[in-house]
């Protein structure tokens, strides 16, 4: 049994959810979720539209607190910690619909992500040395997401695919320990998906990865372990192979395809 296999892996989980729920008025978007993610893991979260995947991300990232349950991140109870404090623990994320700084350049976007982690948010002076280091780091990230030729371009002028790449780049800034990507492949062309998959596969093992993805090729190639959600609850967990073989998953999801949205 998969769960037994996983408990054999001994490392302490870096993310531990217990009984997490989130209501929006009468709607229970997430209900009673237990989740353990171990260091270095590549985890995919699957589920049909409205299953509660993004809501779960938001709760973990601190956009809003859960209405029930507890969240532990790197052994800290962060259940009610504001979002902006979690980045200090090494948590970064992307958004299902891009949330980029459209009025700023690619480099400035990455620079802000780096300053966010490194501190000095309110510094009202330019320091050539410090800013130089941060900016060369920004350029390195731009290279990893293949936007090195667009450094000075206003983000609003980037194509959709480029914006999705930058979205991932924002999460790469500042040596994260846990990256949460919300449908990074949404709206990408086939070629771009391949590039994205390669980039994710090439990520250092120090980075733990949680991935929401409707694209099975991307999700099941990158992920080593899959959590399946439906109606706010976790219904199945297992390896990609186990998931492919699971009848329930087929009925709910794979069998009737999935909505491709952007």
């Amino acid at each position: 049994m998969a769960v037994a296999a996983r408990t054999a892996e001994s490392a302490e989980p870096i993310l531990r959810l217990r009984g997490v729920g989130r209501r929006f008025g009468g709607l229970e978007a997430v209900r009673d979720v237990d989740l353990d993610v171990r260091p270095g893991e590549r985890r995919a979260i699957l589920g049909p539209n409205g299953a509660g995947k993004t809501t779960l991300f938001n709760v973990v990232a601190g956009e809003f607190p859960p209405t029930s349950g507890t969240i532990e991140l790197f052994n800290h109870d962060v259940t009610f910690m504001p979002a902006r404090m979690r980045v200090g623990l090494g948590l970064t994320r992307t958004y299902q619909t891009s949330r980029l700084f459209l009025g700023l350049s690619v480099e400035d976007n990455l620079y802000l992500a780096l300053v966010g982690v490194e501190g000095g948010h309110l510094r009202p002076v330019r320091l050539p040395g410090r800013d130089g280091t941060l900016r060369s780091q920004a350029r390195e990230i731009a290279e990893r997401i293949r936007l090195q030729d667009q450094l000075g371009a206003p983000v609003r002028n980037l194509s959709h695919g480029e914006q999705r790449q930058l979205e991932v780049g924002m999460a790469l800034a500042g040596e994260p320990r846990l990256m949460m990507l919300d449908e990074p492949a949404a709206g990408l062309s086939r070629a771009e998906r391949v590039q994205l998959t390669e980039m994710l596969l090439g990520l250092e093992r120090e980075i733990t990865l949680i991935l929401i993805e409707h694209d099975m090729d991307v999700a099941l190639t990158v992920a080593e372990y899959v959590t399946m959600m439906h109606d706010g609850a976790v219904i199945v967990e297992g390896t990609p192979a186990e998931i492919r073989a699971n009848q329930l998953v087929h009925d709910l999801y794979l069998g009737r395809g999935h909505y491709e949205r952007r």
Binding site: A61, G62, E63, P82, A83, R84, M85, V87, G88, T92, R93, Y95, R99, L100, F101, L102, G103, L104, D108, N109, Y111, L112, A113, V115, G116, V117, G120, H121, L122, R123, P124, V125, R126, D131, M170
Partner: peptide, 23 residues
């Protein structure tokens, strides 16, 4: 400056700025 660029970041996407650690 970092202060000013961050202000523009807040102008464009305050939610992301919070997630990036800004107050």
């Amino acid at each position: 400056t970092p202060f000013g660029i961050a202000l523009q970041g807040i102008r464009d996407e305050p939610t992301r700025m919070r997630a990036l650690g800004y107050n």
